Amino acid sequence: MSGTRDPSLRAAVRGIGLLGPGLVDWSLGQALLRDPTGWAVAPTVLAAPALLPPAERRRAGAIVKLSMAVADQACTQAGVDPHTLATVFTASSGDAANCHALCEALASAERAVSPTRFTNSVHNAAAGYWHIATTSRAPSSSLCAHDASFGAGLLEALTQSIALGRAVLLVAGDVPYPEPLQGVRPLPDAFGAALLLDATPGAPSLATLTLALSAAPASGCGHAGLDALRAGVPAARCLPLLQALARGGPAALVLDYLDGLSLDVRLEPPHARP
């Protein structure tokens, strides 16, 4: 109908980061996502973030290490200065080990909480460490939507990029809890991904991503192991999208979101961008 507004969101994907079981980074992981027959489960290795000053590096928990690793990959691939980037960090778990330690402290006779642990208990700790490391004063949002956290982050980052007319770095990550919380909220391993999204006209592009709400069932990865990882870690709900980006070319897929609601995603190669 004439005059009907397009409800979809559109932006260029300029950079990608990846870290998870058997997926050490985007550069090596994209080949395994293109052809999952060569992928095998291996524990996610989290390194101390070289970008952080020594004091902050010592305090950085698993979620900070994971988030900073994938964020740095996406920025490096895109060749952008992270000092200038607005960010959206999304996680269902936050700093899981710190949460466990705080619960232990509060259950003890002394009930004494370490100031450092209290500082790292906030959900935007990973974002804070990233902006400290990059000396960035750009806007930052931190989200949590339980199993829908990746979808919520993707919607937020796209909306911000369109509304603000600037590139936005989306960082999604989850890490397992120690027991006994792990028994209640089991996550098999750490997984993180980052997308640098840019809705400004003429932005450099690896692909153009168009997003709309849907009620269709979510797409799978076509591989039992990757689908188990996708189902087991909320941040890994992005795997079908990363798989399509790794394969290149046009693609249409559906991502998990809320109950009864999913995200319809379409990818176009750079030359096909309107």
Score class of each variant (00 low, 15 high):
Ser67Arg: 05
Val64Leu: 05
Val175Gln: 04
Gly94Trp: 03
Gly61Pro: 03
Val122Pro: 02
Met68Gly: 11
Asp72Ala: 14
Gln182Asn: 14
Glu110Ala: 15
Thr159Gly: 07
Thr87Asn: 06
Val122Tyr: 07
Val122Thr: 13
Ala145Val: 05
Pro82Glu: 13
Tyr177Phe: 15
Ala96Ser: 09
Leu169Asn: 08
Cys144Arg: 01
Ala127Cys: 06
Ala152Trp: 02
Leu181Ala: 06
Ala62Asp: 15
Ala101Cys: 00
Ala55Ser: 08
Cys103Pro: 00
Val113Thr: 09
Glu56Cys: 00
Asp95Ala: 10
Ser136Trp: 10
Arg117His: 15
Ala96Tyr: 07
His123Pro: 01
Lys65Phe: 04
Asp72Tyr: 02
Met68Ala: 07
Tyr129Asp: 09
Ala74Ile: 04
Cys75Ile: 04
Val80Gln: 06
Ala148Val: 03
Val113Tyr: 07
Glu179Ala: 13
Ser136Gly: 01
Leu170Ala: 01
Thr76Ala: 14
Val171Ile: 14
Arg137Tyr: 10
Gln160Met: 13
Gly128His: 12
Leu66Gly: 05
Tyr129Glu: 10
Arg57Ala: 09
Val70Glu: 11
Arg117Gln: 13
Arg166Ser: 13
Phe118Ser: 10
Pro82Ser: 11
Glu104Ser: 02
Pro178Met: 09
Val168Tyr: 12
His100Phe: 11
Ala97Leu: 06
Arg166Pro: 01
Val171Leu: 01
Ser136Cys: 00
Pro139Lys: 07
Leu106Phe: 13
His100Ile: 01
Cys144Asn: 13
Thr90Glu: 01
Tyr129Met: 01
Ala163Tyr: 12
Ala97Glu: 15
Ala107Tyr: 05
Met68Asn: 04
Gly183Ser: 15
Gln160Leu: 13
Ser141Ile: 12
Thr76Ile: 05
Thr116Arg: 08
Thr116Met: 14
Asn124Ser: 03
Tyr177His: 13
Arg111Asp: 05
Arg117Trp: 14
Glu156Asn: 11
Ala109Cys: 00
Ile162Gly: 00
Leu154Gly: 00
Ala74Pro: 01
Asn98Cys: 07
Ala167Trp: 11
Pro178Trp: 14
Val184Cys: 10
Thr159Met: 02
Leu164Gln: 14
Leu102His: 03
Thr134Leu: 00
Leu164Cys: 08
Glu110Gln: 15
Gln73Ala: 12
